[in-house]
């Protein structure tokens, strides 16, 4: 598996798009920090960007990489390699290279700015951790879609739809249901609902980590009470991990039954 991972990884590291992605973050980091001159504000802005852009990029790269590396995949399939090895290797290779672009792209400007002397280092770290989780999650979802759709246009369309659903539509439905059931206690409901969408979960984890939690009022206090405990943290990272493990498992399952 490691060999495949390595080849996928280096293959991507040489592709133009990885650089574009890396440079995008690099530029973003520098602009935010040196125009704003405020690490904590830069982190809040980054939060907004990360919970939207990282899933989007993960989705697009996941789907593009799968379709573009079909030849590579077919070549590998004829070799004495397990299918699980090939697909998980590619999945992890892609996710790792995207995560690395994120880490370096944002890490370098923050390092240059003097992150280690700032108290914001833990906020930055949790931002990156969440970003890495989101990358792994959305690459896995995208590869699932790609595996089930031979038609590239269709696959691409579905992938964007999944992203749109998670990033926008889900929250819209969430908000509408909150407003409809206004007369009932909704704290537990909203806690559970936000658990099921990795983007919402990540956003709330970061919001609570940053001081913004105070804005969340009573509901926020309840969230804080839940996420503030080790148990709550465990649950949320367990859920995030499920979002990786289950799609990854489906990748394996589907790939075992697919013809090339």
């Amino acid at each position: 598996m490691f060999k495949i991972l390595k080849y996928s990884f280096f293959d991507l590291m040489r592709s133009r798009w990885s650089y574009v992605y890396f440079l995008f973050y690099l530029l973003l980091g520098f602009v935010l920090l040196f125009l704003n001159n405020d690490v904590s504000k830069a982190i809040i802005t980054l939060l907004n960007i990360i919970i939207v852009i990282v899933p989007l990029i993960g989705t697009i790269f996941g789907i593009m990489y799968y379709y573009n590396s079909r030849e590579f995949t077919e070549l590998l399939l004829a070799q004495p390699l397990k299918r699980t090895t090939i697909f998980l290797g590619q999945y992890i290779g892609l996710s790792v290279s995207l995560s690395l672009s994120l880490l370096l792209g944002l890490g370098i400007p923050f390092l240059v700015y003097g992150l280690f002397e700032s108290s914001e280092i833990w906020n930055f770290a949790s931002l990156i951790i969440v970003g890495v989780f989101l990358t792994f999650i959305f690459v896995a979802l995208a590869m699932n879609i790609a595996l089930s759709n031979e038609n590239r246009i269709k696959g691409f369309g579905y992938a964007i739809l999944v992203w749109l659903f998670m990033a926008v539509i889900y929250d819209g439905l969430f908000l509408i249901s909150l407003m409809l059931f206004n007369d009932y206690p909704l704290d537990k409901f909203s806690l559970i609902i936000s658990m099921f969408n990795p983007i919402d979960l990540s956003r709330i984890l970061i919001l609570l980590k940053l001081d913004i939690s105070a804005l969340l009022g009573y509901t926020g206090a309840l969230f804080n009470k839940f996420f503030g405990t080790n148990w709550g943290m465990f649950i949320s990272f367990f859920v995030l991990s499920c979002w990786i493990v289950i799609p990854a498992w489906i990748i394996v399952y589907k790939s075992m039954r697919k013809d090339f």
Partner: peptide, 15 residues
């Protein structure tokens, strides 16, 4: 497959 060499019909390689 360790004992099989395969020449695919269309020579598609990672570009």
């Amino acid at each position: 497959r360790k004992n099989i060499n395969y020449l695919p019909q269309i020579a598609n390689f990672p570009n």
